[in-house]
């Protein structure tokens, strides 16, 4: 079976990451419990997608030789950029959750 192309994977990543980040950001100000739930669901989905991308990358680089075929290199770079985007989304969500947690405990302690 042909693996998904980098652009399809990129759109899938964006489709999961963008609403999750928005929801986490909004819920951080309202109810942190829900922001944590939404965040962890999003992170799990993104990590699953990353696992798929990583598999494709490992398979692709298994066939790499020196000197390489330039088209293969370009495909590999495209997949790795998508993988970097997935990791960026995961870290962003985790970072937002951590900062949200800090803001809440800090506010609570201050009042």
């Amino acid at each position: 079976m042909e693996p998904l192309t980098p652009s399809v994977l990129a759109w899938l990543t964006a489709a999961i990451a963008a609403p999750t980040v928005a929801l986490v950001y909004v819920y951080n100000g309202l109810d942190r419990k829900w922001s944590a739930v939404v965040g962890f669901v999003g992170v799990a989905a993104l990590l699953a997608l990353f696992a798929y991308t990583a598999n494709v990358i490992m398979a692709l680089y298994g066939a790499m030789q020196f000197p390489p075929d330039m088209q293969l290199v370009e495909l590999g770079v495209a997949y790795q950029r998508v993988a970097a985007g997935q990791l960026a989304a995961v870290s962003l969500i985790v970072g937002l959750l951590a900062v949200g947690y800090y803001m809440e405990i800090s506010r609570r302690g201050h009042e």
């Binding site: 870290s91 962003l92 970072g95 900062v99 947690y101 800090y102 405990i105």
Partner: peptide, 12 residues
């Protein structure tokens, strides 16, 4: 917690 957030936001 803030530092953990900072590290992850920076990686992101």
């Amino acid at each position: 917690a803030l530092m953990v957030g900072q590290v992850f936001l920076q990686i992101s």
